[in-house]
Each structure stands twice: as structure tokens, then as C-alpha cells.
Amino acid sequence: MVSAHEVRPAVLAAVDDGLQFRKARARAACLRLVPRQYSTDGKQTLLGISKRGNRYLRKLLVHGARSCFRHLDRTRDRLASWLDGLQARMHPNKALVALAATMARTCG
């Protein structure tokens, strides 16, 4: 199981304090947890997620998301209702990566 004591120092080592990013999505994009975005003329196109970047950190975040996904109290938590909606719409592995990207945006 992945603990927060492993993830936070790894994120800080990879992206420092995160002040170089103007938006939280840019931090998650740096870790390659969100799709690459191409936008022109007000039209956005989301491309695939590449496997470049820090593989160790991405693995830690995805395993932490998997643990959170499994052990979260679904009756009391607002994050759990968001996860249930994601799981109803998409494959569970995609929902896990979305949760890992959310964790990457908020940690640090």
C-alpha cells in the first residue's frame, strides 16, 4: 500500500513547490496524468496520455488512487459521489487515473 509519506516527497522532488505552474492542470500534465491538449480558434481537442515523464511518481499516484478508490466511505464523502459518477460513465481504470490526476493537482 502507498502512504502519503512516500507520495508527497516524490511530488515535491519532481515539481518543486509547484509555483512555476499557472494552473493545477499544468502540474498534472507535467506528470503525464491528463491528456495532451491542442486548442485553436476556441476549439479544444484532447489527445492521449503519454507514458513519458516520471514513471515512479505516476505509479505512486495511481496506486494511491487505487487504494483510495477501494477504501473510501461511499456514504459520507463528496469525493466518493464524484468517483461513483465517474465509474458509471467510464472504465474503472480511467476513473483511477482521473482520481490520480486530482490527487496530483491538490498535493504539494
Rank of each mutant, 00 (worst) to 15 (best):
R76H: 07
D41E: 13
R27F: 07
H71T: 09
G85I: 03
Y56G: 07
T102I: 04
L79P: 04
C30H: 15
K51G: 15
L60P: 06
L86H: 09
L33H: 11
K51E: 04
S39Q: 13
A24F: 03
A65K: 05
C30F: 15
R58Q: 01
V11A: 14
R70C: 02
R32V: 04
R55L: 13
D77H: 15
G64D: 02
G108Y: 11
G53M: 02
G64S: 10
Q20R: 03
V97A: 08
P35T: 00
P35F: 00
D16N: 05
Q37G: 10
A98L: 02
A13T: 08
A26L: 06
R36Q: 09
V62R: 10
D41R: 13
V97G: 11
D17M: 08
G85T: 02
E6D: 15
S3A: 14
R76L: 05
L79N: 05
L33A: 10
W82Q: 03
Y56M: 01
R58W: 02
A95P: 09
L72T: 11
I49R: 15
T45D: 02
R8F: 09
L79Q: 04
L72I: 15
F69E: 07
S39R: 08
A65E: 02
C30E: 03
G53F: 01
L46P: 13
L61R: 04
K94G: 09
K94I: 03
L99N: 07
P92H: 12
S67E: 10
K51D: 13
A88E: 09
P9A: 12
Q37S: 05
G18T: 01
R105I: 06
V97L: 03
F21E: 06
C107W: 11
L99E: 02
C68Q: 05
V11C: 08
P92A: 10
A100Q: 02
V2T: 10
L60H: 09
A95S: 13
A98E: 03
A28Y: 00
N93K: 13
Q20D: 12
R22Q: 15
R55M: 09
N54A: 06
R52Q: 14
V11H: 13
L47W: 07
D16P: 00
A104H: 03
R58Y: 01
G108Q: 06
R58G: 00
T45S: 01
A13G: 14
A98R: 08
R89Y: 11
F69M: 07
R55S: 14
K43H: 06
A101C: 07
P92W: 12
D16E: 04
R78Y: 04
S39V: 10
G53T: 01
